[in-house]
Amino acid sequence: MVRALLYAFVYAVAGFPLAVTGAVLVLAGLLLGGVLSVTALGPWLLALTVRGALGLGAVQRRLARVLLDVRVEAPARRARAEPGAFGWRRAVLGDRAGWRAVGCALAAPLTAALPLAAALAGYVYGALFVLGPLVGAGEARLVTALAGLALLAAAPWLVRRSLAPHRALLAALLAEDPADRRIRALEETRAQAVEDAAATLRRIERDLHDGTQARLVGLGMHLTLVRELITAGADEERLLGVVDTARANATQAVAELRAVVKGIHPPVLDQGLDAALATLAADAPLPVTLTVELARRPSPALESLVYFCAAELLANAVKHSGASAVTVDVRGTDGELSLAVTDDGRGGAAPGAGSGLTGLGNRARTVDGALTCDSPPGGPTVVTVSVPY
């Protein structure tokens, strides 16, 4: 508590000189760059000013994190569209985060002055009133001392309250813009969707090449052999043996084709998500309690996503959790479709821990959804996938 009060006082005292210095430098750079904009030097000076404002913003974010325990997420750095120095200049001047940092640098002295005034009024004048009353003697001295004690007692509250506008300014102008964050998330999910689609195509190609294609080639060879045996007048027993082998290959090829098709789009999904999940639960090696409550049938894309997420989570519960039972709860109301899979296993699951949860989270994000995992040591584990409905 004492350390937090001390850090807040240090920030209130040091923040204003930093803000004033930064504002003066940024303003001077803008004015000089504007005056020289008719020359080749002007754009470079403006770019350096914007870059300096970004550096000043980084310092302010770090001070706020260290001294105030206020975490302001830094905006993502914009990639250069063109290489070289001119590409750097174009990227800096076109970066909205840089110009927002410029605005923060120019406005920071106004908000930083409030905590400095609060610190001076509360701590400095409070100490002066207590240690050396400025006016009067006797009762007046006592009143002054009491007023100083009151100022000292109220100083932490005054500093905290006066820091609120400055914190709001940093959060509004130095954090990542919501629109930029949304664009970055869409770019990441689009890239993830493309990678998932490519991986799916590679898996299908591998399964067809290593399995079904080999079976069909073998079937063709056996049919050729049957033709040769018939032409040669081979005995019936040998001919039937080759036919049985060919039939077994055909049966296996059909089974493998069905498995490939099921990996793309399970046919049971045509009957609805509830029927598909019921089939999935019935095939699971653990007892599964299934609850499905949907206000309306989801789109085929959502049904497929929820189905494959449920299949992956059930597989995780079987392989990793040591659970004896699993509960699958699907609800679709109020614009949100949620899938919650709960097991009574050992717990300790977390995204990125090799459980496949990271991939499921990325898959949910492709439709603007999210994945949460609550898995304390000892269990139970509850993984929830929520998507717009």
Score class of each variant (00 low, 15 high):
L5A: 15
F9A: 12
Y11Q: 08
A12D: 00
V20E: 01
A23N: 01
V26A: 03
V26C: 04
L30I: 07
L32G: 06
G33Y: 01
G34D: 12
V35Q: 12
L36P: 01
S37R: 15
A40T: 13
L41Y: 09
P43A: 11
W44I: 09
L46M: 11
L46T: 03
V50L: 07
G52L: 07
L54C: 06
G55C: 08
L56N: 00
A58Q: 12
A64T: 01
L68E: 00
R71P: 03
R78Q: 11
G87M: 03
A91L: 06
V92Y: 00
G94I: 08
G94N: 08
D95S: 03
R96F: 11
R96V: 14
R96Q: 15
A101M: 02
G103H: 01
A105V: 02
A105T: 01
L110N: 06
L110V: 15
A112K: 01
L114T: 00
P115K: 01
A118G: 02
A118R: 00
Y123G: 00
L131I: 09
G132L: 13
G132K: 08
G136R: 07
G138Y: 05
G138K: 01
E139N: 04
A140T: 14
V143S: 07
T144N: 08
A147L: 14
A150L: 09
L151E: 04
A154I: 03
A154T: 05
A155C: 07
P156H: 09
P156E: 05
L158F: 14
V159G: 00
R160T: 05
L163F: 07
L169A: 01
A172Y: 10
L173C: 06
E176C: 11
L186A: 14
E188G: 05
T189S: 15
R190P: 04
R190H: 11
A193W: 10
A193K: 10
A198T: 09
R203P: 02
D210S: 14
D210L: 15
D210F: 06
T212M: 08
V217C: 10
L219N: 05
G220N: 14
V226M: 13
R227M: 14
E228F: 08
L229N: 04
A232G: 11
A232R: 13
D235E: 11
L240Q: 13
V242S: 05
V243S: 13
T245E: 15
R247S: 12
N249S: 13
Q252C: 08
A255W: 07
L257T: 06
I264E: 08
L269A: 04
A276L: 02
L277T: 00
P285R: 05
P287R: 07
E293I: 14
E303T: 07
E303I: 07
S304P: 05
L305Q: 04
L305S: 02
Y307R: 00
A310E: 00
E312R: 10
L313A: 02
L314C: 02
N316W: 01
A317W: 02
K319D: 15
A323N: 03
S324E: 15
S324V: 06
R331V: 07
R331H: 11
G332Q: 04
G335E: 03
G335V: 06
E336L: 13
L337A: 00
L337T: 00
L339F: 15
T342V: 11
P351W: 05
G352L: 12
A353F: 08
S355Y: 05
N362S: 10
T366F: 09
D368H: 14
C373W: 03
G378V: 02
G379N: 01
P380R: 13
T381Y: 02
S386R: 14
P388I: 01
